[in-house]
Design a binder for these strands. Structure first.
Length: 336
RNA sequence: UGGGGUGUAGCCAAGUCGGUAAGGCACCAGACUUUGACUCUGGCAUUCGUAGGUUCGAGUCCUGCCACCCCAG
């Protein structure tokens, strides 16, 4: 019997993921990662209901070091980080793999909405069912890791997953979708950052001509493309078009200023046998569309992404740019 | 203290020959969401500097006052 370690959050997706694997004949062991204040109670309910063992891994220190601190540091240096992209390859999946190694399991699994595609050259990440596809969050997983991953719910619509959970009598069936960053309470990331001792000084809000329009509360409160909660009344709609870290200014301007013809990526990773240059559809935000682009290599593991038709709106330093051909992930990098 | 102009919600600003307060921004709530991102939906002046007058009815007409702005050899 094949063994699998399932990342169990206590929510619907991971619960159904475990149930499906059991039904397929796998010997399931659950692993709850204690990354924040949320305890393993819900995960335990699931494991007891489905009758498989549950391991609990204390991850709070690692979470702080690998995810939360970089998150805060990115914000105070004027970038807009994407913690999930970082958490998956540096914390969550390694933890699953080490648990698997410990108990001699061949596979790990999570309730992400993605798929993998085996090829002679290696394992590729593939999109899950729209609109919940989470491949944007997992693009930094290596082929070696993906080769051990099972994503049993990746192609099933969310409604079906919920229905299945109900049929199994799982209380997790009604768990609301997680929509916020897991370690940020009350959806208030700025306060969270400040609670960690990070902050940025107040400064001027200016227009593109440098005219002072008002004061900002610290650069970490703003992101590119933002319109609301700026507190400046103007003739028409204006957006944050730049965060000037050297002058400590938030620059406001027209939406048309948010579409650069090309962007630079750092820390580029590529799927097996993929080489630059290449053409791809790129995503610069989780819930946005695809933009055709030419991706060319640059020194120091960087790449230049040149949009070939409609440029993406507000590609933001710190966010990821993920490269797709059809529904297969070819790689990606961090926007600089 | 001479002449001219302006005064409508936090900001900008429509308001025709008087007929019973557009719109935009900001803000708030909700949907959506990795993001206090974008987007979308809804809310937001019984009241028009102020005191009177004319009128069935005034932000719109008349008068006084107040405030601010501009030009004043």
């Amino acid at each position: 019997m094949k063994k699998v370690v399932v990342g169990l959050s206590g929510g619907v997706d991971s619960a159904v993921c475990a149930a499906r694997l059991q039904a397929q004949g796998y010997a399931v062991t659950g692993l709850f990662l204690q990354t924040g204040s949320q305890g393993p109670e819900r995960a335990r309910e699931v494991s007891e209901r489905l009758r498989f063992p549950l391991l609990v891994a204390e991850m709070r220190d690692q979470m702080l070091a690998n995810v939360i601190t970089p998150f805060a540091e990115a914000y105070v240096s004027g970038r807009t980080p994407n913690p999930c992209v970082l958490c998956n390859p540096t914390l969550k999946f390694p933890a699953l793999l080490s648990a698997a190694a410990q108990i001699g399991a061949d596979y790990i699994a999570t309730g992400h909405y993605v798929q993998t595609k085996q090829t002679p050259g290696g394992t590729f990440l593939q999109e899950g069912v729209a609109p919940r596809d989470q491949s944007y969050m997992l693009y930094r997983l290596s082929s070696d890791v993906l080769a051990k991953c099972l994503f049993p719910i990746g192609t099933t619509p969310k409604e079906d997953i919920r229905a299945e959970a109900r049929a199994l009598g799982l209380t997790a069936a009604e768990t609301p979708d997680s929509m916020e960053i897991c370690f940020v309470p009350d959806d208030d990331y700025a306060t969270c950052i400040e609670a960690l001792g990070y902050t940025t000084p107040v400064g001027n809000i200016v227009d593109t001509e440098g005219r002072i329009l008002g004061r900002h509360r610290g650069l970490h409160h703003y992101t590119l493309g933002q319109r609301r909660h700026i507190g400046i009344a103007t003739k028409g709609r204006v957006f944050v078009v730049a965060l000037d870290t050297t002058r400590n200014e938030v620059v406001l301007g027209d939406d048309s200023l948010l579409y650069p013809p090309s962007i630079t990526l750092a820390d580029v990773i590529l799927a097996p046998a993929v080489t630059l240059p290449l053409t791809a559809n790129v995503r610069v935000r989780h819930s946005r569309g695809y933009h055709p682009a030419l991706v060319t290599p640059m020194p120091d593991n960087k790449a230049l992404v040149t949009f070939t038709s409609t440029p993406a709106r507000a590609p933001t330093p710190g966010q990821s740019c993920v490269l797709y051909q059809a529904d297969v992930v070819l790689g990606g990098g961090i926007i600089t």
